[in-house]
Write a protein that binds this DNA or RNA. Sequence first.
RNA 1: GCCUGGGUGGCGAAAUUGGUAGACGCAACGGACUUAAAAUCCGUUGGCCGCGAGGCCGUGCCGGUUCGAUUCCGGCCCCAGGCACCA
Length: 859
Amino acid sequence: MDDQYHPEKIEAQAQEWWREHATFRALDDPTREKFYCLCMFPYPSGKLHMGHVRNYTIGDVISRFQRMRGRNVLQPMGWDAFGLPAENAAMQNGVPPARWTRDNIAYMRSQLQALGFALDWDRELATCDPDYYRWNQWLFLRMREKGIAYKKTGVVNWDPVDQTVLANEQVIDGRGWRTGALVERREIPMYYLNITRYADQLTDALDGLDEWPERVRVMQQNWIGRSEGVAIRFPYDGGAVGVFTTRADTLLGATWVAVAPEHPLAIRAAQADPTVAAFIEECGRGGNTEAEIATQEKRGVPTNLTVEHPLTGEALPVWVANYVLMAYGEGAVMAVPAHDQRDLEFARKYDLPIKIVVRARDVAPVELTALSEAFVTKDGVLCNSGKYDGLGFTDAVASIAADLAARGLGELKVQYRLRDWGISRQRYWGCPIPIIHCDSCGEVPVPDEQLPVRLPENLVPDGHGNPLSRCADFVNVDCPACGAAARRETDTMDTFVDSSWYFLRFASAGNDDAMVDARVDYWLPVDQYIGGIEHAILHLLYSRFWVRVMRDLGFLGFDEPFRRLLTQGMVLNHVYSRREGEGRVEYFNPADVHGTGNGATLRADGRPVTWEGMGTMSKSKNNGVDPNRMVDEYGADTARLFMLFTSPPELSLEWSDAGIDGATRFLRRLWRQVADHVAAGPAPAVNAQVLSDPQRVLRRHTHETIAKVTDDVGRRYTFNTAIAAVMELINHVSRFEDSSEQGQAVVREALESVVLMLAPMVPHICHAMWRALGHAGTVADAAWPAVDDAALVRDTLQLVIQVNGKLRGDVEVAKDADKATIERLALADPAVAKHLEGKQVARVIVVPGRLVNIVTGNR
RNA sequence: GCCUGGGUGGCGAAAUUGGUAGACGCAACGGACUUAAAAUCCGUUGGCCGCGAGGCCGUGCCGGUUCGAUUCCGGCCCCAGGCACCA
């Protein structure tokens, strides 16, 4: 064993050993207990960044730990390879997205391999491979047969200059990112997946996901947004406006009805009234996201239309309002200004009537003039509501709903915030939707035997529309039904489709005859899924939905894809940009910027850049930090150790490499200790019966550390505290001087335990040290160390003494001392006695094993 | 705007079930070794007061519950993630 630590040498050797022995190839062996550990696969954006290193290091620690615990571990890797950045890169460099993507995959694969992750590369997949996406197409057709996939219109961002559909990310302040043109909302036909059919299941099953973070379950629950209320229809000549409300008790306080700009009544009103038409057109410009709609100024215009109040028959005016979403419910709301803050503000702004119909119990109704805030509580009683006066919320809703039902104008209803999943994208670099449009047969599915519909890989997008629609070889096709000339669908699928089931395919790798096979029954569900918190809702919800659909189609025998979930915190870095005219933004990597924060300048031209604060490392914000420099300078083990040690996995992390020296210093120190110990010759086995006190103390530290690290790595996933505990143990070992046989024996036990405990985190150095300590094979195959409970025994405990909650002393007591003894010892402590002078002891609180608190006072 | 997290020394953090705030590191400072540097080793290190013993203050801000609050409750501020076409 070298007495110096040379990471580049031992890392190459360890990786070579694992490759030669195919150590991490997962065998489908149903006789063994399996563990499927999966990290969210990366988008091949070019280079790894620190967020990837963090994610895959965490997954690797868990995989290697479970392996040492005896599980048959599968840890695969793949590429989320379709998507927008490849098209942007193509426009910039004139390279087809396919080539750019595959080059990136090759480079990033080599980066992952250099980090020594225990991956089964035999099962690698990329979603842009026809062997993969053919099954997207195949399942889409099965969903279409069941009505789960269907067609309706949806709204997109339209850039009128480039004549193209923009992603939300490409709309900056309501303008196209390349053209600066004001973006328009456009309605076009799209395919949808009927996820709302599963809304109740998806929300109910969250309770069973008890190994998911609470916050993710809450977020999903709020996203699905189940609410119980009443569907109410406000009739007008020739129809009725449907609204949904959770506050049917306030129905008698409704003073107008507001509809979304896209609502049929709004369009009807616009035909007669140019003011309404102008307002609708204005609402149709600019950004389309919920955030933009929710933060814009609430505005509206009156129409000359009225609807009838369903109970009183009173005529209520219809307004068109920019805050009503066509996508939620039926695109209309009843306005009750006295009991809804937003409606109240709208009423004040446009001088609309306000009617109080709920008052606090035992209090007279508030005067209108005194109504500064809407009275929104459900804990009141009705007033000004005729026969309903005096009823509480629950009775009022039941009674009003019954009366509405009797008139055919409403009924109790469960409403979800969740909307169906639109999967059509008017983009080239994605999975083609397998549909053919025929003038005589209409919409015809591509026959299964013609799958996959291959995406041509040689096109280069130019920002004007979808290049697929200009590709005659792709578009022109014979109708499978009648044989006449027909056109292929040129929309591709949302990339979330690709990522909704890739975890199944790893378990069916290489099967060209079926999407999934029996191996899925063995490996799935995923035992541990690890990925960024940014996927808490969409990706995880879509995957849960997809698995349920495949289950109902008879292809899977389980409900939930991911048993245990770890949501890693984001790795953040500064974001610097320049606005280049309206809408256009360029981002600069912090490495190319001089200074930090406000006042930073671009190195290249010395001109100022705008600091946008901290943001997630990403391609789109150009603020990633490439791990290569760190790996080249310090080695993979140091990079991994630093990443794990610097913070617990769920916390977000503002990137800084301060502290990397501590990680590498620790590994050097550990290496030297092992080398010194090995050089001193063989040590005998520990004989617990003959140990001296210091030997017994070191051995107790060793086993306390094993217990702590096993819990931290196996249950808590707090790798930072596990590493700290190992560092403490190493500090004890280095202070321990005892060259006797048993002295060397307890040191050897400590060092071997440390090597085993660190093996999942810094696998290369541990592989080398394990072999130097005289073991054959690789430490990756060794068993995780066991705690010897006998070594943990202590005879005495240290208790802290407080007086009135302030620390005043401590006392050592026998581990089984009773309360009276502890109390007597505590009161006898001189430092404590000083603080009790002239005071009376009112209470003494003894917390076993922890502290004594003496409370003084009168009596 | 809405949903979800987070805020503790100069910095990353720890305190696992309401029980010693700052473990373990980084940085800094002092010392040893060295011709020197690097590397390594030893020590100090939340703030204020004190020669010292020791005392007081301190976990974003304001308030509350408790013998005891970083931890629980109410209100607020800031940062981050998500808001359905970035992935």
